[in-house]
Design a protein around this nucleic acid. Sequence first.
DNA 1: GCACCTGATGTCAGTCACTGTCATCGCGTA
DNA 2: TACGCGATGACAGTGACTGACATCAGGTGC
Lengths: 187, 187
Amino acid sequence: MGRWEPNARQRLAEAALRLYGEQGYEQTTVAQIARQAGLTERTFFRHYADKREVLFAGSPLQELFVTAVAEAAPDAALLDVVGAGLDAASGMFRGRHEYALRRQAVVEAHQELRERELIKLAALATALAGALRDRGVPEPTATLTAETGVAVFKVGFERWIRAAEETDMAPLMRGLLAELGRVAAGA
Amino acid sequence: MGRWEPNARQRLAEAALRLYGEQGYEQTTVAQIARQAGLTERTFFRHYADKREVLFAGSPLQELFVTAVAEAAPDAALLDVVGAGLDAASGMFRGRHEYALRRQAVVEAHQELRERELIKLAALATALAGALRDRGVPEPTATLTAETGVAVFKVGFERWIRAAEETDMAPLMRGLLAELGRVAAGA
DNA sequence: GCACCTGATGTCAGTCACTGTCATCGCGTA
DNA sequence: TACGCGATGACAGTGACTGACATCAGGTGC
């Protein structure tokens, strides 16, 4: 792999998050990020498609979520399948509250970054719908369930990250899933 | 208002949709759009913040949806309030299937445009949550309901636009809302 | 030990989205 | 008729992103 200084990708990602946080996303040029990482602007774009992607590439969220859905018990109820996915997603944030908070503050401060985050979540919903169809869930139930599951994740993540202390994300997600059930039941 | 040729904004929007459709979004330069509309590139950016916004500005979707939610009967069930919003949203697409299809084909063909669409829907969800809170719905129910309502709209719109013939969007949305109820009830 | 291959990086020129600034133009108004 | 004002044009500049080509370091085959 690395014949030069190793971990060029990671160095770029760390420099980007630091600079975006310190001086703002718009005020940071790609050339600055590359220089901090000891590379050139051209090399940045060989590792990341654009200035936004450096904050999003490499997250295992989708894979964890989808795998959990695919591997849930074949006879599990639909809501429990979603819950298993949410549990798996919650796991990847354990012990990372401070990092996630720092990153999320940057993302929320800039429309371009929020847009990128939303399309990642949309891709997650699409992948989830596929996993549900593979389990035999018909359309439009699969897509509707996937979109709803992602909506629960969005709300839960938002609440988890706003908490003063790091809490366990999984029960929070389960609680929202239950609340959704009450809403849909007309309560 | 217009002391020069009137409807500069509309001319720009029409030229943009036509060119994006004919030769692709990336292959179209803002200078081309402006020239087609008899204006300059600089004037384009006085009417629209960027090359993407020209396809999204001016849509009354959010206002219609939110107003319907705000004006629903005070004692209406939560799901019926969302349903009223979906009905109002459906109304604005009546008779516009062909136009919507043309526009959607362009949007779906380019990630930058899909991102912009997603952030518009996220803004809709935020506004809906506010309208629900104004009705006395507590958090996190308000946000969860709003996100779920938008998810239903996304799925319904997708299905409506894929239909060969223009159908009535409202019953489609109502059907999805009912299906969501069955999912959340654990069926 | 040497020539060669290969993948990661550097260099450079170029396009285009987007912005700030100032000039200009056409209409309404005093 | 002179003036004000909002919409537009002209122009220079920045920075994201791309394509083409050179270079460099390490592994490979001999």
